[in-house]
Amino acid sequence: MELLRAENVTKKYITKKALVNLSVTIEEGKIYGLLGPNGCGKTTFMKMMAGLIQPSNGTIEINGNKIGTKTKEIVSFMPTSNYLPKWMKIKQCIGYFHDLFEDFDIKKANDMIVFMGLKEDQKVKSLSTGMLGRLKLSLALSRNAKLFVLDEPFNGIDPISREKTIEVILNACNEENTIIISSHLVKELERILDEVIFMDQGNVIVTGNAEDIRTEKGMSIDEVYREVYANA
Protein backbone atom coordinates (compact mmCIF):
# COMPACT_ATOMS: atom_id res chain seq x y z
CA MET A 1 0.00 0.00 0.00
CA GLU A 2 1.23 3.46 -0.92
CA LEU A 3 2.38 5.58 2.03
CA LEU A 4 4.13 8.52 0.40
CA ARG A 5 3.80 10.10 -2.99
CA ALA A 6 6.03 12.90 -4.24
CA GLU A 7 5.14 14.49 -7.57
CA ASN A 8 7.35 16.87 -9.54
CA VAL A 9 8.95 18.21 -6.38
CA THR A 10 11.39 21.05 -6.95
CA LYS A 11 13.34 22.98 -4.34
CA LYS A 12 15.18 26.11 -5.37
CA TYR A 13 17.83 27.68 -3.17
CA ILE A 14 19.68 30.94 -3.70
CA THR A 15 22.20 29.66 -6.21
CA LYS A 16 21.04 26.15 -7.09
CA LYS A 17 18.19 23.70 -7.26
CA ALA A 18 18.39 21.02 -4.57
CA LEU A 19 15.54 18.98 -6.07
CA VAL A 20 14.42 19.02 -9.69
CA ASN A 21 11.02 17.56 -10.60
CA LEU A 22 11.49 14.66 -8.24
CA SER A 23 8.74 12.04 -8.33
CA VAL A 24 8.76 8.92 -6.22
CA THR A 25 6.37 6.58 -4.44
CA ILE A 26 7.09 4.91 -1.10
CA GLU A 27 5.16 1.86 0.04
CA GLU A 28 4.20 0.61 3.47
CA GLY A 29 6.09 -2.15 5.30
CA LYS A 30 9.47 -1.74 3.63
CA ILE A 31 12.94 -0.42 4.36
CA TYR A 32 14.16 2.03 1.75
CA GLY A 33 17.73 3.11 1.18
CA LEU A 34 18.02 6.68 -0.09
CA LEU A 35 21.45 6.67 -1.67
CA GLY A 36 23.57 9.21 -3.43
CA PRO A 37 26.66 11.42 -3.16
CA ASN A 38 26.86 14.54 -1.01
CA GLY A 39 24.68 17.38 -2.26
CA CYS A 40 22.39 15.19 -4.37
CA GLY A 41 19.29 16.33 -2.43
CA LYS A 42 18.77 13.43 0.02
CA THR A 43 18.65 15.60 3.14
CA THR A 44 16.46 18.21 1.46
CA PHE A 45 13.97 15.51 0.46
CA MET A 46 14.04 13.96 3.92
CA LYS A 47 13.49 17.34 5.57
CA MET A 48 10.54 17.87 3.27
CA MET A 49 9.01 14.59 4.44
CA ALA A 50 9.47 15.80 8.02
CA GLY A 51 7.83 19.15 7.26
CA LEU A 52 10.96 21.22 7.84
CA ILE A 53 11.32 22.45 4.25
CA GLN A 54 8.59 23.45 1.84
CA PRO A 55 8.84 22.53 -1.84
CA SER A 56 9.13 25.42 -4.30
CA ASN A 57 6.95 23.39 -6.67
CA GLY A 58 5.22 20.04 -6.65
CA THR A 59 3.46 18.13 -3.89
CA ILE A 60 4.25 15.50 -1.30
CA GLU A 61 1.48 13.50 0.32
CA ILE A 62 1.88 11.09 3.20
CA ASN A 63 -1.03 8.78 3.96
CA GLY A 64 -3.15 10.97 1.69
CA ASN A 65 -2.35 14.20 3.56
CA LYS A 66 -0.25 17.12 2.44
CA ILE A 67 2.74 17.81 4.69
CA GLY A 68 1.55 19.48 7.88
CA THR A 69 0.56 18.72 11.46
CA LYS A 70 -1.35 15.58 10.35
CA THR A 71 1.69 14.07 8.67
CA LYS A 72 4.01 15.12 11.50
CA GLU A 73 1.92 12.90 13.78
CA ILE A 74 3.02 9.85 11.81
CA VAL A 75 6.52 10.79 10.64
CA SER A 76 9.51 10.26 12.91
CA PHE A 77 12.57 12.14 11.69
CA MET A 78 16.16 11.74 12.78
CA PRO A 79 18.39 14.47 11.32
CA THR A 80 22.17 14.29 10.96
CA SER A 81 22.67 17.36 13.14
CA ASN A 82 22.23 17.51 16.90
CA TYR A 83 18.69 18.78 17.21
CA LEU A 84 18.39 17.96 20.91
CA PRO A 85 18.71 20.92 23.30
CA LYS A 86 22.18 20.77 24.87
CA TRP A 87 20.95 21.69 28.35
CA MET A 88 18.74 18.61 28.55
CA LYS A 89 19.56 15.33 30.22
CA ILE A 90 18.66 12.13 28.39
CA LYS A 91 15.67 11.60 30.69
CA GLN A 92 14.44 15.10 29.86
CA CYS A 93 14.75 14.32 26.15
CA ILE A 94 12.63 11.22 26.74
CA GLY A 95 10.14 13.37 28.66
CA TYR A 96 10.05 15.91 25.83
CA PHE A 97 9.28 13.22 23.23
CA HIS A 98 6.72 11.63 25.55
CA ASP A 99 4.98 14.97 26.07
CA LEU A 100 4.98 16.11 22.46
CA PHE A 101 4.53 12.93 20.44
CA GLU A 102 1.41 10.95 21.25
CA ASP A 103 2.81 7.79 19.66
CA PHE A 104 5.98 7.83 21.77
CA ASP A 105 6.51 4.61 23.72
CA ILE A 106 8.38 5.54 26.90
CA LYS A 107 9.08 1.93 27.87
CA LYS A 108 10.54 1.21 24.46
CA ALA A 109 12.70 4.33 24.79
CA ASN A 110 14.01 3.38 28.22
CA ASP A 111 14.84 -0.15 27.02
CA MET A 112 16.55 1.18 23.93
CA ILE A 113 18.60 3.70 25.92
CA VAL A 114 19.94 0.84 28.07
CA PHE A 115 20.54 -1.35 25.00
CA MET A 116 22.49 1.48 23.38
CA GLY A 117 24.71 1.82 26.45
CA LEU A 118 23.42 5.25 27.49
CA LYS A 119 22.44 6.54 30.92
CA GLU A 120 19.37 8.65 31.69
CA ASP A 121 21.31 11.17 33.76
CA GLN A 122 23.82 12.03 31.04
CA LYS A 123 23.57 15.54 29.62
CA VAL A 124 23.23 15.94 25.86
CA LYS A 125 26.19 18.35 25.73
CA SER A 126 28.44 15.76 27.38
CA LEU A 127 27.74 13.05 24.79
CA SER A 128 30.21 12.06 22.10
CA THR A 129 29.12 12.07 18.44
CA GLY A 130 28.53 8.32 18.52
CA MET A 131 26.54 8.46 21.75
CA LEU A 132 24.49 11.33 20.41
CA GLY A 133 23.76 9.35 17.26
CA ARG A 134 22.59 6.41 19.35
CA LEU A 135 20.40 8.68 21.49
CA LYS A 136 18.80 10.36 18.47
CA LEU A 137 18.09 6.98 16.91
CA SER A 138 16.65 5.58 20.15
CA LEU A 139 14.29 8.54 20.47
CA ALA A 140 13.23 8.47 16.83
CA LEU A 141 12.59 4.73 16.80
CA SER A 142 10.69 4.77 20.11
CA ARG A 143 7.76 6.34 18.36
CA ASN A 144 5.10 4.10 16.87
CA ALA A 145 5.26 6.12 13.67
CA LYS A 146 4.16 5.02 10.23
CA LEU A 147 7.18 6.53 8.52
CA PHE A 148 10.69 6.69 9.98
CA VAL A 149 13.05 9.04 8.16
CA LEU A 150 16.63 8.46 9.27
CA ASP A 151 19.24 10.77 7.82
CA GLU A 152 22.71 9.21 8.07
CA PRO A 153 21.97 7.18 11.23
CA PHE A 154 25.48 5.67 11.24
CA ASN A 155 27.32 9.01 11.27
CA GLY A 156 30.06 8.95 13.90
CA ILE A 157 29.04 5.49 15.15
CA ASP A 158 31.84 2.93 15.53
CA PRO A 159 31.60 -0.43 13.70
CA ILE A 160 30.51 -2.38 16.79
CA SER A 161 27.77 0.07 17.72
CA ARG A 162 26.76 0.12 14.07
CA GLU A 163 25.70 -3.53 14.40
CA LYS A 164 23.54 -2.59 17.37
CA THR A 165 22.10 0.30 15.38
CA ILE A 166 21.17 -1.99 12.50
CA GLU A 167 19.57 -4.42 14.96
CA VAL A 168 17.50 -1.63 16.49
CA ILE A 169 16.36 -0.45 13.06
CA LEU A 170 15.38 -3.98 12.06
CA ASN A 171 13.42 -4.42 15.29
CA ALA A 172 11.51 -1.20 14.63
CA CYS A 173 10.38 -2.37 11.20
CA ASN A 174 7.06 -4.14 10.78
CA GLU A 175 4.42 -4.55 8.09
CA GLU A 176 2.63 -1.36 9.03
CA ASN A 177 5.50 1.08 8.92
CA THR A 178 8.19 2.18 6.53
CA ILE A 179 11.77 3.18 7.16
CA ILE A 180 13.76 5.44 4.86
CA ILE A 181 17.49 5.52 5.55
CA SER A 182 20.12 7.62 3.88
CA SER A 183 23.72 6.56 4.27
CA HIS A 184 27.09 6.46 2.58
CA LEU A 185 27.85 3.12 4.22
CA VAL A 186 26.01 1.17 1.55
CA LYS A 187 27.91 -2.07 2.13
CA GLU A 188 26.76 -2.34 5.72
CA LEU A 189 23.28 -1.12 5.05
CA GLU A 190 22.36 -3.08 1.96
CA ARG A 191 21.53 -6.34 3.72
CA ILE A 192 18.55 -4.74 5.47
CA LEU A 193 17.21 -2.81 2.49
CA ASP A 194 14.09 -3.91 0.63
CA GLU A 195 14.10 -1.05 -1.84
CA VAL A 196 16.72 1.43 -3.02
CA ILE A 197 16.41 4.93 -4.43
CA PHE A 198 19.52 6.34 -6.10
CA MET A 199 19.53 10.11 -6.32
CA ASP A 200 21.70 12.48 -8.27
CA GLN A 201 21.49 16.22 -8.86
CA GLY A 202 18.15 16.51 -7.16
CA ASN A 203 16.38 13.71 -8.89
CA VAL A 204 15.83 9.95 -8.73
CA ILE A 205 18.02 8.16 -11.24
CA VAL A 206 17.43 4.52 -10.26
CA THR A 207 14.75 3.04 -8.04
CA GLY A 208 13.56 -0.48 -7.42
CA ASN A 209 13.64 -3.62 -5.34
CA ALA A 210 17.12 -4.22 -3.92
CA GLU A 211 17.05 -7.95 -4.71
CA ASP A 212 15.83 -7.34 -8.27
CA ILE A 213 18.62 -4.84 -8.88
CA ARG A 214 21.20 -7.24 -7.50
CA THR A 215 19.91 -10.06 -9.75
CA GLU A 216 19.56 -7.87 -12.80
CA LYS A 217 23.02 -6.28 -12.52
CA GLY A 218 24.74 -9.32 -11.05
CA MET A 219 26.40 -7.24 -8.36
CA SER A 220 25.79 -5.98 -4.86
CA ILE A 221 24.03 -2.67 -4.18
CA ASP A 222 27.37 -1.33 -2.96
CA GLU A 223 28.93 -2.19 -6.32
CA VAL A 224 25.98 -0.71 -8.19
CA TYR A 225 26.43 2.43 -6.09
CA ARG A 226 30.09 2.65 -7.02
CA GLU A 227 29.27 2.13 -10.67
CA VAL A 228 26.45 4.65 -10.77
CA TYR A 229 28.45 7.34 -9.00
CA ALA A 230 31.83 6.54 -10.50
CA ASN A 231 32.08 10.02 -11.97
CA ALA A 232 30.28 11.90 -9.19
Binding site: K47, A50, G51, L52, G68, T69, K70, K72, E73, V75, F77, P79, S81, N82, Y83, L84, P85, Y96, L100, F101, E102
Partner: peptide
Amino acid sequence: TEEGQLLFTTPLS
Protein backbone atom coordinates in the same frame (compact mmCIF):
# COMPACT_ATOMS: atom_id res chain seq x y z
CA THR B 1 19.76 26.75 15.10
CA GLU B 2 19.49 22.97 14.82
CA GLU B 3 17.22 22.79 17.88
CA GLY B 4 14.42 24.14 15.72
CA GLN B 5 14.39 20.86 13.81
CA LEU B 6 13.07 19.14 16.91
CA LEU B 7 10.42 21.76 17.61
CA PHE B 8 9.17 21.93 14.04
CA THR B 9 8.88 18.14 13.61
CA THR B 10 6.44 17.99 16.52
CA PRO B 11 2.80 17.84 15.44
CA LEU B 12 2.18 21.35 16.75
CA SER B 13 0.96 23.99 14.35
